[in-house]
């Protein structure tokens, strides 16, 4: 009996969706736009994260040690730094390695190379190149290295020279991320409200039928069920359509974004995460459609 009722409710919802195709088309169109926007917002956030990661990857802080510092001590400091939670990686550049890199970089500068050869010993210092997880963490790392016990061996930390750049980068990446979240929230809210209102209007056209159903002896559940099923169908169909609509959009837009921001390939991201997108859009559509119907129909059941 219960199984029969559930089947009837689903069938009735599906019939409502198919038979009132103009109303369904209009509702689905609005929801497709809303969900499409949601998909674009997800991609936009991926893009901002990629940009932030890219910018942060370009910054590091180098610690230069006095020339007479033993290699073991430098490696000891490296060991300590690696243990810090703020530190992402630490590269050790020995004196010989530094010289090799220097010679490589300036091999076309004959004057410089000649003066280097005239020196008795390697003039370069061993160093550690430190990368932090976030740009904002460089200050903490620099302060850590200012400790008394490092005084004898560390010649200088180039944080001060880079400080301006790092601070600007920290505030820039912070702003990009905050803006991304705020824009997503605002547009997401607008999308949800527009969808909710569209479904509410759809339900409004059914208010007379709802009262008839109740008079014929339908329980509230039997009245509500088909409309919720219809709302869920709106959501699922819209989610799938929005997902498919993103493909041609990315086909044209993605290469242009890659030109502008090398390393950001949205099409690849979309294809690699197709099922995640599918579940995101369909689940949001389903929830939005179902709950909107449920809320919208409540007032007609109360009268």
């Amino acid at each position: 009996m219960r199984k029969l009722s559930v089947w009837r409710v689903i069938k009735s919802g599906w019939q409502g969706f198919i038979r009132n195709y103009w109303l369904s088309t209009a509702t689905v169109a609005v929801m497709v736009l809303a969900l499409f926007m949601l998909g674009c917002l997800a991609l936009f956030n991926v893009m901002t994260q990629a940009v932030v990661a890219n910018l942060e990857g370009r910054v590091d802080v180098s610690v230069y040690f006095n020339q007479d510092t033993e290699e073991a001590k430098v490696l000891g400091v490296r060991q300590e730094l690696v243990a810090l939670s703020e530190v992402k990686s630490v590269d050790y550049v020995s004196q010989d390695e530094a010289l090799k890199r220097f010679s490589e970089r300036h091999k076309d500068n004959a004057v410089l190379m000649q003066s280097l050869q005239e020196l008795d010993q390697n003039p370069l210092q061993p160093s550690l190149n430190i990368k932090a997880n976030y740009a904002s963490q460089y200050e903490t790392i620099a302060n850590y290295l200012n400790d008394e016990r490092f005084k004898g061996m560390i010649d200088r930390v180039n944080y001060k020279q880079n400080k301006d750049l790092i601070e600007r980068l920290t505030s820039l990446t912070g702003n990009i991320q905050t803006a991304g979240i705020v824009i997503s929230l605002v547009l997401g809210l607008i999308a949800a409200l527009v969808s909710f209102n569209t479904i509410r209007l759809t339900m409004y056209t059914w208010r007379d039928e709802i009262s008839v159903m109740r008079l014929v002896g339908a329980s509230n559940w039997f009245v509500r069920g088909p409309f919720v099923v219809e709302g869920v169908i709106y959501g699922v169909v819209s989610g799938v359509m929005a997902l498919l609509l993103m493909y041609p959009m990315l086909y044209f837009v993605s290469p242009k974004i890659t030109n502008f921001l090398p390393g950001v390939d949205l099409m690849y991201f979309y294809q690699a995460n197709f099922w995640e997108f599918f579940f995101l859009l369909v689940a949001v559509g389903l929830l939005l459609g179902g709950t909107s119907s449920l809320i919208a129909i409540r007032r007609y059941l109360k009268d």
Binding site: R8, R19, M213, V216, G217, A218, F222
Partner: peptide, 14 residues
């Protein structure tokens, strides 16, 4: 949005 048959059947379905 329901046929004559479905309108009458509805009262039995509920």
């Amino acid at each position: 949005d329901r046929t004559v048959y479905e309108n009458v059947a509805f009262a039995m379905e509920v």
